[in-house]
Design a protein around this nucleic acid. Structure first.
Length: 742
RNA sequence: GGACUCGUAGCUCAGUUGGUUAGAGCAUUCGGUUUACAUCCGAAAGGUCAGAGGUUCGAGCCCUCUCGGGUCCACCA
């Protein structure tokens, strides 16, 4: 053995050894009394290289996987990759922009293919990197969210939802990003506090010249489309206004003042303007009272054609002009420049989200969520991560129906079909064979004798009014049909990941490995992903997809600051692996970590853990090569030594069983270094502890440390194998030192 | 406004159902070793476990309040 452990020399070699022996895949046949242990890997984006957060999940999940594999469980860690709809299309569009192109230059099928090819180019990177970190996942079972079989499984669920009357199409206010060109679910919207001027706008009273009703608003630009003001009927000061009429300050059209108790008499002026097409609350009121809902802003974020002189202006510009015009006419009482409110922004591009009226597909969540809430109550779901069980409960109880329509091409296209001849008012944009862009309604296009086939092939966008008749089917119902251009929310397929993966592999795998045991991920996608997996899994398979949820925290820099590119404190896991070794990186991330809490790590931590790998190596080297074991002939068995070894095994096993990985790692570290090395080896040097016993103890420690630092422990193990000290050929599949007690 | 979470050595954090002198890494001081360890070992110093009150034979751990970080959620236009 060399004087020093050189991770560069061993890591690749050791990983190759494992791959050759195909130890990552569970045995072909299930042995007797074997319990399954399955973890579905949170699929990284197919397109992105790994960041340190990925290293964290690899470290944790690999520890659990290796632990259970050594316990003899039927262990499967199933890897995959996610198409990450919006993220990926966003990145791709940026790339297009550099080439002076946009998505509007291509029909959707061509665009889809281009993104597919682009993703393929980068898809191997993440896998290679996870392997470098030592991930013992079963790569032969790798699944991509857009693999046909996985897609088919996901779509079956859509049909089931439809049959069970849990899927509906409705025109509602949806969170629409005019920049990304798609709607979002409530989860993808970030509310940010901003200082926005609050304008006090005066509405002239119709029957009392010179008198006004003042309304405070942060959004003056859609005033032209407003038709009503509202006050609270319980508001003694203002309820007399109910039924009175005012003039719209922009259009001079008469507006009625109505009463509804959603108005807070103490806020602003106690009078509200109703903008039902662009405000969730106003929309609800308008629906309730049957008021008109007039859109003022279009999908491009511009004022609609009915906006008179403001038509076509971007919202921001329109606002400035409207305010200027109102001021000119003396209709602005005052402007509160210091007003703070929270506005919805796109989590992806940070632009302002416009609530827009759009027909979309929704999933009714209430019935789906119910059994999960019950399971949570009965403690059938265990969440490791302080406080997150309560957060999950809160979300489950307050979830809106799930908007699953996305106006992007990179994703699973909705299996929704419109008969062109029955729906003459579809709004269609397509590119002809010669590349000419045509926009029109279905009746217009049919009148111009465009073949439906040609439209379908060059289709860019199809927008169907709420009244359109549609069919849901996996295949085209006939020649007259065009398929919906919207895709499904990425999380719709992700929500089914625990079973669509297994089912797409084989029904046998599904039977054998579902439900899974552990779901491990960062706490920030608890609601996006974990919550939805719970209710979709339960709905489709009748079983909860997993029982233990381990939520790891975010990795911060040594000073505890969030990592960000602008701060320049981002650490690249591959550089760290290069410098200190994968074992050191894994150990530094895991040791003393606590689920649900963020962790600060820095160079000194990686160095310290690199020293551990070297310590492991050298302690082994000493015991195997330098210690005089010839005196072993009259070796006295030291009971205390054996007792302590057993005790340490028990503690670490218990910690791992209870998902206390940080504690397990710390215990292993301390007991190995400060007890085994500092005390026992020194005692042995003095001839008071036998070499054979020390070697047996070393084997136990190699096993206990293997889940955390797989490479160096396996490297040492191989010398044990060479020296014929052990008959277990690989540490990765060696038997765990002690039985787990549950 | 509601909820969650953290506050332990100079710094970053552990502390498993409350139980003997509260731990680790890094940093500091002193000594040793360089025939396992581009290092390592031994020793020292450093904490009224945010503060106050309570439960208990016993509290870093449980309860209440206060102060101070962080995070999430909410339709005050």
């Amino acid at each position: 053995m060399d004087k020093r452990y050189d991770h560069q020399e061993y890591e690749q070699k050791i990983y190759g050894l494992w791959e050759e022996n195909q130890v990552f895949s569970p045995a072909k046949q299930l042995a007797k009394n074997q319990k399954p242990f399955t973890i579905i890997m949170p699929p990284p984006n197919a397109n992105d290289p790994l960041h340190v957060g990925h290293a964290m999940f690899v470290a944790i999940e690999d520890v659990l996987t290796r632990f259970h594999r050594m316990l003899g469980d039927d262990t499967l860690w199933l890897p995959g990759a996610d198409h990450a709809g919006i993220e990926t299309q966003f990145v791709f569009e940026k790339k297009l922009k550099k080439e002076n192109k946009t998505r509007f230059d291509f029909d959707r099928e061509t665009l889809y293919q281009m993104i597919w090819d682009y993703v393929q180019e980068n898809s191997g990177v993440a896998i290679k990197q996870m392997k470098r970190l030592g991930a013992s996942a079963d790569w032969s079972r790798f699944v991509f969210t857009l693999d046909q079989k996985a897609v088919d499984e996901a779509l079956k669920t859509l049909l089931k939802l439809d049959q069970d009357d849990l899927l509906y199409r409705d025109e509602q206010l949806v969170n629409y990003c005019t920049h990304c060109g798609t709607s979002f679910s409530e989860l993808e919207v970030i509310h940010q506090e901003q200082t926005t001027p609050l304008y006090y706008v005066k509405y002239p009273l119709v029957d009392r010249v010179g008198e006004f009703v003042t309304v405070a608003t942060v959004r003056p630009e859609p005033i032209f489309a407003d038709t009503h003001l509202a006050v609270n009927p319980k508001d003694k000061k203002r309820r007399a206004l109910i039924g009175k009429k005012v003039l719209n300050p922009l259009t001079q059209v008469e507006m009625e003042i109505i009463g509804d108790d959603f108005v807070d008499p103490d806020f602003g002026t106690g009078v509200v303007k109703l903008t039902p097409a662009h405000d969730r609350e106003d929309f609800a009121v308008a629906k309730k009272l049957g008021l008109p809902i007039n859109p003022a802003i279009d999908l491009m974020g511009r004022i609609v054609a009915t906006g008179g002189k403001y038509a076509g202006l971007k919202v921001k510009v329109a606002r400035e002009q409207v305010v200027a015009d109102l001021q000119k006419n003396g209709l602005i009482e005052k402007i509160d420049e210091s007003y703070k409110n929270r506005i919805a922004t796109c989590y992806r591009c940070k632009h302002v989200i416009e609530p827009l009226l759009l027909p979309q597909f929704f999933i009714k969540v209430k019935p789906l969520v119910k059994p999960v809430l019950e399971a949570l109550k009965e403690k059938k779901i265990r969440i490791h991560g302080t406080g997150y069980d309560k957060i999950l409960k809160h979300w489950l109880e307050n979830l809106y129906d799930w908007n699953i329509s996305r106006q992007i091409v990179w994703g699973i296209r909705m299996p929704v079909w419109y008969d062109l001849e029955k729906n003459l008012d579809l709004s269609i944009t397509f590119l002809t064979k010669t590349g000419e862009k045509i926009t029109g309604t279905s009746s217009e296009l049919l009148a111009k004798n465009y073949a439906i086939k040609e439209i379908g092939q060059g289709l860019q966008e199809l927008r169907a009014p709420l009244t359109a008749e549609y069919m849901i089917a996996l295949k085209s119902p006939g020649e007259n049909y065009l398929q919906e251009t919207d895709t499904l929310d990425t999380w719709f397929s992700s929500a089914q990941w625990p079973f669509t993966t297994l089912k797409s592999l084989s029904e046998k795998d599904f039977e054998r490995f579902y439900p899974t045991q552990v779901l491990e991920t960062a706490y920030d996608i608890l609601m996006f992903w974990v919550m939805r997996m719970l209710f979709m899994g339960k709905y489709v398979t009748g079983k909860l997809p997993f029982t233990d949820i381990y939520l790891h925290g975010l990795i911060r820099d040594a000073k505890g600051q969030k990592m960000s590119k602008s701060k320049g404190n981002v650490v690249n896991p591959m550089e760290l692996t290069e410098k200190y070794g994968a074992d050191a990186l894994r150990m530094a991330l895991i040791i003393r970590s606590t689920p649900g809490l963020d962790k600060a790590v820095g160079e000194q931590d990686f160095r310290a853990m690199r020293n551990l790998t070297n310590k492991l190596w050298n302690a082994s080297r000493f015991v195997l090569e330098h210690l005089d074991t010839t005196q072993a002939g009259e070796e006295k068995i030291n009971d205390q030594f054996n007792k302590k070894i057993e005790e340490v095994s028990q503690v670490i096993t218990k910690n791992l069983t209870n998902f206390q990985l940080g504690l397990a790692a710390e215990t292993a570290y301390n007991e190995f270094w400060h007890w085994y090395c500092d005390e026992c080896i020194e005692t042995a040097k003095a001839g008071k502890l036998g070499g054979q016993q020390l070697i047996a103890g070393l084997q136990t420690f190699l096993k206990l440390l293997h889940p955390f630092t797989p490479f160096v422990t396996e490297a040492v193990w191989q010398t044990l194998v060479e020296k014929k000290i052990t008959n277990e050929p690989l540490l990765i599949t060696a038997l765990w030192p002690t039985k787990s007690k549950e």
